[in-house]
Design a protein around this nucleic acid. Structure first.
Length: 342
DNA sequence: AATGTGTTCAACCGCAGACTT
DNA sequence: AAAGTCTGCGGTTGAACACAT
């Protein structure tokens, strides 16, 4: 048979610890070490269960705990580790000296998670939340008028997009402009499908796939932990494939003009980087990831990119503000987006 | 000043795997 | 081998606090 029960839960104190209890616990562990948590409360004269003592010690009383606000570097580290490890708070805490898993978990849920959501980033997958895009403006944009292009297919994004929303978008596309562009450009009409096939089978991605598969797997995610960087690489590679396509060039110019016209880029920032008709620069801009997300601060940054501005920001608020604008999606009144959110 | 609302975070709960008997 | 405990972990809660009206 097994051991005797850890503790009799009846009558044991719960709730916040008093300074006296803290002192008792600290004194005991200083003298004897914690040893068996099961027997500790009795030996230390505490009316608590061992589990409660262990939690109090590891999360609050341990002398090597670093208290106070998280630094920017710590925050960036947490985001990077989370993109690889998922909600493995203890594993993340092990790489941040002085911080407990509980503290990191709380900080993630109260600060980082909300910030990512404000930026339109899914905090679980670290991918852009395309399901929050303003479909109506996208569908009516000059991009659409030029190419009758399925937006999600253009971006090479499928994961993270609610299928219902995509279906709705597709329905809208086909019903609104069924006759408009059908014969406009036969070459381009096969473009989306080709792009999709490329994403699935392109041998160029094999090394990236391997790269990701070598990482630990995100157990809390509903799909393998393909990080934001990985997806960004794929998207970028996908689009680069079509740079030689003249119709795609048109499309890029159209998209860029739409971004400017529709206030995707905040007014005050338009002077910070120069509008360009060069597709590669545009693509870099579209797929560049702000450093606060996943890019190590030491990584090289394209000059003509959003992150150039972000990295030169002086305060966290500025970054947040800028990123919020970049990812600010207006939800059409007629569309109840709650129905589409995971 | 009173009340309502939002935020924070210490502490609890329940589960799973390791361990003991 | 089986039954039960121990330990660590991640998710969740709710009291305390901050801020807005």
């Amino acid at each position: 048979m097994g051991r005797a029960p850890c503790c009799d839960k009846n009558g044991l104190k719960k709730g916040p610890w008093t300074p006296e209890e803290d002192l008792k616990l600290i004194d005991y562990i200083k003298k004897h070490g914690h040893g068996s948590w099961r027997t500790l409360p009795k030996n230390a004269g505490l009316d608590r269960c061992g589990k409660s003592c262990r939690l109090r010690w590891t999360n609050y009383l341990r002398p090597d705990i670093k208290r106070g606000r998280f630094s920017f570097e710590e925050e960036e580290t947490i985001i990077q580790l989370h993109s690889v490890l998922g909600n493995k708070w203890s594993a993340i805490a092990a790489r941040l000296s002085g911080r407990t898993d509980n503290e990191i978990k709380n900080y993630w849920n109260t600060h980082i998670r909300k910030r990512l959501l404000r930026m339109g980033i899914d905090p679980i997958t670290h991918s852009p939340r395309i399901d929050l895009l303003d479909l109506s403006s996208l569908l009516n944009s000059s991009l659409y008028n030029t190419s009758q292009l399925n937006v999600s297919t253009l971006l090479g994004i499928q994961s993270g997009v609610n299928p219902e929303l995509l279906r709705l978008a597709t329905t809208l596309l086909s019903s609104q402009c069924q006759n408009q562009n059908q014969n406009q450009n036969p070459e381009f009409s096969s473009f989306p499908q080709n792009l999709q096939e490329n994403q699935l089978y392109n041998p160029k991605f094999e090394d990236l796939q391997t790269e990701v598969q070598e990482h630990p797997v995100c157990t809390t995610s509903t799909r393998p932990c393909d990080t934001f960087l990985y997806e960004t690489k794929i998207m970028k590679t996908n689009v680069e494939q079509y740079q030689s396509n003249p119709t795609f060039n048109l499309c890029c110019q159209s998209l860029q003009s739409t971004m400017w016209q529709d206030n995707v880029v905040p007014e005050e920032l338009r002077g910070k980087f120069i509008p360009t008709t060069d597709q590669s620069s545009l693509i870099d801009s579209l797929f560049d990831v702000p450093s606060v997300l996943s890019t190590p601060s030491s990584s090289p940054t394209p000059l003509n990119s959003f992150s150039t501005y972000i990295n030169s920001s002086t305060t966290e608020d500025e970054k947040d503000s800028f990123c919020s604008n970049i990812f600010k999606f207006e939800i059409p009144d007629a569309l109840d987006t709650n129905d589409f959110l995971y």
